[in-house]
């Protein structure tokens, strides 16, 4: 399947468009993408877009692409590659759009959808200890620190556990 289109107060969560692909490729070219395995060249970043679409086709869920007023601002949703023990709630907001609460807003909609529609949860988020903005998002979402996870390219990563229920 392809992603449904969901709405939060300010954001649209949905499938990839070529504008989303180009915005993601531009983001992956910068050091700002280090927490999702970047920087990556155009070819690898494009593969990242295709992998997101593939997760939807293969598992029936995956990352949503986020737009604010029609402009791509990032992606958020459930990331579950084959080798992981459990699905992860993950979010990325491009630097120009950070600091506005978009990640929290999108991740909450995606989490509620995953819980209510897929019966998943309580979901985990794996966050690099150096990624302070993302740690604040996890805290705002009510996630609690559970312990260390496998390091990401030598950087320590912590496992955050989200609450079990759909937010009121």
């Amino acid at each position: 399947m392809t992603p449904p289109v969901l709405h939060s107060q300010r954001l649209t969560l949905g499938p990839a468009s070529s504008a989303h692909a180009e915005a993601f490729i531009a983001f992956c070219a910068t050091e700002d993408s280090r927490f999702i395995g970047g920087p990556a060249d155009r070819r690898d970043a494009w593969e990242g877009v295709a992998i997101s679409a593939g997760l939807w086709a293969l598992r029936g869920f995956g990352p949503f692409w986020l737009s604010a007023g029609g402009v791509p601002v990032g992606r958020a949703g459930v990331y579950y590659p084959d080798w992981r023990a459990e699905p992860e709630l993950a979010w990325t907001i491009y630097p120009a759009y950070q600091g506005r609460g978009y990640a929290t807003e999108a991740a909450l909609v995606a989490r509620d959808w995953a819980y209510a529609t897929l019966g998943l949860g309580p979901l985990v988020s794996l966050i690099d200890t150096g990624n302070a903005p993302s740690i604040r998002v996890a805290q705002k979402l009510g996630a609690v620190l559970e312990g260390p996870h496998e390091p990401n390219g030598g950087h320590p990563v912590m496992r955050w556990r989200h609450p079990a229920g759909v937010a009121a």
Binding site: P15, A16, A50, I51, S52, A53, L55, W56, A57, L58
Partner: peptide, 8 residues
């Protein structure tokens, strides 16, 4: 995933 996702 690329093989599966490219359709969309």
């Amino acid at each position: 995933c690329h093989d599966a996702g490219l359709w969309a």
